[in-house]
């Protein structure tokens, strides 16, 4: 299946602003991130902590909804889903 991925802010140093990713049916957000990190290894530092878990402040939205409120990294993906990755800004 294909999903669309959009990246924002610092993540754009490692990912295209918008890209279509081919991934096997039944994949989760975790599978998608694994694939993205394989394609762009420096992305791991931005997304994952030293234990390999997602840094909790990186917002991942599936079709506009934060995966923190769905099933986290186990959130399932479907054909045509839009996944947005954005680390929030904090300064003022």
């Amino acid at each position: 299946m294909k999903v669309r991925v959009k990246s924002f802010a610092i993540l754009r140093q490692f990912l295209p602003r918008e890209t279509e990713v081919e991934i096997r049916d039944g994949s989760s957000v975790r599978d998608l991130l694994d694939l993205l990190v394989k394609q762009a290894p420096p992305l791991a530092n931005e997304l994952l902590n030293e234990k390999g878990e997602l840094k909790d402040f990186v917002n991942i939205l599936r079709n506009g909804r934060n995966i923190h409120f769905i099933s986290g990294l186990d959130t399932p993906l479907s054909e045509g889903d839009l996944v947005a990755l954005f680390p929030p800004a904090g300064g003022g």
Binding site: D56, F57, N59, N66, H68, F69, P87, P88, A89, G90, G91
Partner: peptide, 15 residues
């Protein structure tokens, strides 16, 4: 809290 459930680490950022 819904929009940014987990804040980025505190500290000075470049601006």
């Amino acid at each position: 809290h819904c929009i940014v459930p987990h804040p980025p680490p505190p500290g000075d950022v470049p601006i």
